[in-house]
Every structure is written in C-alpha cells, then in structure tokens.
Design a binder for these strands. Structure first.
Lengths: 343, 343
DNA sequence: AGCGTATGAGCGAACGTTCGTCCACGGTGT
DNA sequence: ACACCGTGGACGAACGTTCGCTCATACGCT
C-alpha cells in the first residue's frame, strides 16, 4: 500500500501548462473564463494524476468549512441515534459533512466536544443530547461562537429548539388508556429533571384530570431512559400499587424493560396490564407483544434541525421556538380494553 | 446572538505586543523559548479575547487533520451503532475527531462518502458497513488514498480487517442447542452474500456435523439483519419444518423478529422452540424472554479499529488480518433443554 | 575589557486554495 | 490605419497557522 502523496492543483497546472489559478477556476471555481480546449486539458491531467481538491485550504480562504458538528448522547437510546443519522444524511444532501461527538456516560464532556468542534470551525452545531439541559458551559459556548440548533432546551436560551409536542404525546397515550376503560394508570417516566419528562407528565395529568381521575404520587415511577431503569421502575410500581392495570412509559427503550418486568412478574400484557409508550422506534412492532406507542417523528426532527441550522448559517433569522412536530398514536397489541376482574 | 468574529492569533499577538509567531509558540506550540512574563501576558489576552485556535490553518501546514472518517451503514443495526460510538470515543481519547457518513438504505453511496472524506483530508478511515463488501470503488479509493481499517472484508484486500471470530460464534451457539438435546435446529441467517453470514453458517454446520447431524437445506432461512426479515424467515422455517425445536439467529436485531413471529405462531420460547442469537446488544436481556446469545465484543471492535488505524497512520505496519476477538456464550432464558413431546 | 553563550523574541517562508485585478492579443468597426 | 473591446489567462494577495532560522541583549568567565 505505497500510498500516493496527494497531488496539488499546482502540479496539475504545471503539467497542463497553465497557471495554478487558472486550473483552480476550471477544477473548483465557478465562472470559467477559459477556452474549452484548455479546460479539457486541465480536467484530463487532473484525472490522470488523481487530483483531489484539498477542502482544508479552501476552507481557510473561504472561512467556511461546509461541516456541521453533532453532539449526541451515548447512543444507548436508539431514538436519538435515528434522529442523528437522519440529520447526517440531510446535511450531506446539502453538501455538508458532519463531525460527531458522543457524550461519555456521565455526560460531563459536552464542553470539551463543543470546543473541539469550534476549533475545527464547524459552520454550526446540532445538539441531540438530553444532558446539555444542565450544561451551562455548553450553552455559553454555543451562544458565543457558533450557530446551533438543539433537540433539547439549552440553559439560558438563545439556541433554537426543535422537536415534537411532548405534552400532547403524554395526553394522547394516557387518554388512549382511559378510553379503554382503565383508571389505575401508572407511568414510568424519564428523569424528572428533564423537560421532556415534565411535559409528558403534564400531558398525562391533563388526560387524567379531564377524565376526573386523580394522580396518586405512587403511580409515578422515575426511569432513566434505559430498559433496566424501566424494569426497575415497573417493579416499584407493581409493589406500590398492585392493582395497576395500565402503564404509560416515556420511551420505547424503557418499554422493553417494562414488558420484561411485567412478564417476569407474571402479568400478561395487555390482559392484566396495558402498556403504551412513545417514540415508535423501528422495532416497536416486533416487541412481545407489539407495542402501542405514540409515534414521534425522529428522523424528521433530525432533518428539521439541519434545515433550520443551515438557514441560520446562511444568516437567516430563525425562530427560537419553531412549530412543534405533530405526534400520532399507533395502536398495536400491548393495549386492550380493561378486563373486569372475573373473580 | 450577535456572534463574535473569531479572533486570530495575530490579533492576540498585537494586543499583547509580541509577534504572532511568538504568540503561536506559547498558545499552541511545543518548545516555549519565551519568558514567563511574556507567556503569561499572551495567555491572558488570548483568554480575554476568547481566542480559539483555528485547526484548519494548522492542518494546512502540518498536513494532518487529526480527524478520521467513519463510514457506517444506515444504523438500523444497533450492533454497528455501538461499535461506531465506541470508535468515536476512542478516537477522541487520542485527540482525534470523527467525520461520519451513513450509507443510504440502498448502500450505493459509499464512494461518494469516501470521496468527501478524502477531500476533507481525514488521516484515516474506518469502515463499519457490510455493504462495502461489494463496493470495489470504495476499496480502490481506500487503497489508493488513505489508511483504512474495516469491520468487513473489502474487495481486493489491502485494508486490515478487525472483528470477532464469526465461525466460532456459529459453532458456540449451535453446540449449545445440541447440548440441550435439540436436533431439529434451524437457522435464520444474514444475507448469504455476506462473509459474516457464511462464516457463522460454517460454524453452525461444524457443530451439527460434529454431532452427527445433517443440515437439510430447508432448515436455513435467509434474513436481512432487520427484525422484519427475521420474522419473515421464521415464518418460512415454521412452514417448511414444523417440527423444528430450536433456532440459531445471526443477529440480536433479527432475534427480535424471530421471537415476535414465534409468539404470534403460538410457539412458546423456550419450551416449544429454543432461540439462541449473537451480538448481545445491551437490551438482549430485556427481550421476552431474555435472550441467550453469543456475546460479540462490539465496543472493543470499534476501539481496536481505531487503535489499529492510528498505528497505521503513524506509519507502523499493521497486519491485514489482526487476531480475531474472542466471543462468549451468554445463557439466558430463551434456551432450555428440549422437551419430549408429551402427547 | 573582551569573548562566548544562553536566552528571548522576531521574521520569512510555506501549506493549497480562492478571489479580484491586470495584461496581452487578435479581431472589429470606421 | 487607428482606437476599441472582448476573450483567455496570468498573477498577487490573502486565509491563519507552524517551523526553523536569525538576531539582539545581557550575563558570566577569563
């Protein structure tokens, strides 16, 4: 693998018998005031020599890198992964590359990641990591140095927030359960300190209130977005309120753990306990049983983040609170009308 | 958000009353032949002005970007995602950034992604996308322009291949089933054109042969790494060989679909059909039932890829076939001794 | 007093591009 | 025959760094 040195535009130009600036015009430039014959010759030698433009040099003079940064959380949560992938593909569609950084599990290295991105002069940054809600250092860096769009609220504001309607998500899921006749409805939430958790919790309470039901505190158990956390929260719920007949889970990944815990506790889903979740990750329909869930437009969120960011980079004024994306209930087999206890 | 212009080292130097080259020495350089007082002053004004080094300019002169490219597949497969994330974190630990590109679903844009990475002058490329096994264009670009390490074999060779022992994986899983008394053992594979599929299939056959069993062709059903594909393959298997009592699945993601299809067909796992898979993705233990699976060191594979790549970038000669990483059977509840049909 | 030397800092060049201006040439119209 | 103009291409400058060399100063030594 004797790797060839990169050939520069100067070498191409020399070989084609033109100045390197002329070669630049035909190879990468825009308005070509060059004869067809010369252009052909330059193109041919470039091809022959295996010329690849050096975007580093280009970036230096143009003061723009056509690169955006993406700071994502540890990717244990597939929902975030899906938004990230969609974002990268959308960025590429617009000719941009994506530099990623995944937070460490503690989530304390956000500022380091952002600093590295800034030093690489990314044109903008997308944040898809719940941990940043607490990270004032990240927030300040973003406000000060570079256009950004976030999927989570950033302390102090100043960074547009894209996403879906979380409160509506909680409301939809819960009223679905109510509509099926359930009244002892528990919920396995995300971490309480997260906005999305509080919003979904509000939606849950909205629905209960509208049905004239109360929210006893012991029907709410805090999870951590992981299957393991979902399972633990479910065990707690079952212990505190054995009569529970339905659970609203704040994410599909946790729902895996919820279903698992229910299964081990000998409760059948949906006959004994109905489960509704949110996200609609791609394999929700392959869980056992197939999961009823509120679909959150993950990929679209990622794409919207990129579109907004690119507009912001282009100098356009973007609203700090763009319209929330709509959510939709997908009914599968994990929910069913409440069975009257036959004994 | 009146974004501040980036301040250059020249401005810092001017304000501190030194030449910009001197400022460069203390801010980014190595051997500082500068008085403590001057250094302090430069550092202070840099801080005051919010100076961030421009690595683009640095890269241009040093002819190295401290950036590696990662081409990954569409990330429907969580196993690949996990390797990617680990790779990124390992790279960052070594001071490198990561530029990612996710293949489109068809997987035909690999060369475009690689070209973009090359033009951005990444120091090396890691490939984590099964689709490249067919992509001679990608292989040629890698061989010609940039050090690379792949998690999948690349046509024509020349790119070191990291990974685990796939044949052993198939053997371990299958002989586990045999040890439990099963003999009608089917398998849901990955796409046949993939090496990993063929290796795991060989392991499966090795184990069967060692036990004196045959491999009727209708016990093998091809999947596509997705849960949906796994479910479809399972239905096929059930239809062709209703007497089947065990299934070896080539990935945990497909196992989701296998469990789902079995559940819908009314077959209990593990009592009626035992299921063993491979990967051990993080939520394998939360499937219903918890999945017996052969653990593949995903994160370690990602890290090894980076380490090898960095060594290759440093000019070290790396073997094209580094030792395969070991795999390990994790027994959970989806497998059990074969029940003698009691009727 | 004079020399050598260490120390601190300046300075030119280079990395590979883009961008705008300048120049030479040949053809056209009168 | 002359001025004029359009066309094709050259060329200098700049982007923000790093690297290596040069230079001035002051100190210690004989």
């Amino acid at each position: 693998m004797a790797r060839r040195r990169y050939v520069s535009i100067k070498e191409v130009a020399a070989r084609a018998g033109v100045s390197f600036q002329t070669a630049s015009k035909v190879l990468n430039g825009s308005d070509v005031r060059v004869s067809a014959e010369t252009a052909r010759r330059i193109l041919a030698t470039a091809e022959e020599l295996g010329y690849r433009p050096n975007t580093i040099a280009r970036s230096l003079v143009q003061r723009t890198t056509a690169t955006i940064g993406l700071v994502a959380s540890d990717a244990t949560d597939i929902a975030i992964t899906h938004a990230s992938v969609a974002a990268e593909q959308e960025a590429r569609r617009h000719g941009h590359s994506v530099l990623v950084g995944h937070l460490a599990v503690g989530g304390t290295d956000g500022a380091d990641i952002v600093r590295a991105l800034i030093e690489r002069r990314v044109d903008g940054i997308i944040v898809a990591a719940p941990e940043v809600e607490e990270d004032t250092e990240v927030a300040e860096l973003l406000r000060k140095y570079v256009p950004a769009v976030s999927l989570q609220a950033v302390p102090g504001g100043g960074v547009p927030l894209v996403g879906s309607n979380h409160r509506e998500t909680g409301r939809l899921a819960t009223s679905h359960l109510i509509g099926l006749g359930h009244s002892a409805i528990g919920t396995v939430t995300g971490p309480f300190r997260r906005r999305v958790t509080r919003s979904r919790l509000h939606g849950y309470e909205d629905a209960l209130r509208a049905a004239g039901l109360e929210t006893p505190e012991d029907l709410v158990a805090e999870g951590d977005w992981t299957p393991g956390g979902g399972a633990a929260a479910t065990r707690l719920l079952l212990e505190r309120s054995p009569a529970i007949t339905a659970i609203f889970v704040h994410s599909d990944m946790m729902a895996l753990g919820v279903l698992s815990a229910l299964f081990r506790a000998g409760r059948r889903v949906p006959q004994d306990v109905a489960v509704v979740s949110c996200d609609d990750i791609p394999f929700a329909e392959y869980m056992t049983p197939p999961l009823t869930t509120v679909r959150v437009p993950l990929a679209e969120t990622g794409r919207q983040a990129v579109d907004l960011l690119l507009r912001s980079i282009a100098g356009e004024q973007v609203p700090e609170k763009p319209p929330l994306l709509p959510v939709e209930l997908i009914v599968r087999a994990s929910t069913a009308p409440r069975e009257r206890t036959s004994e």
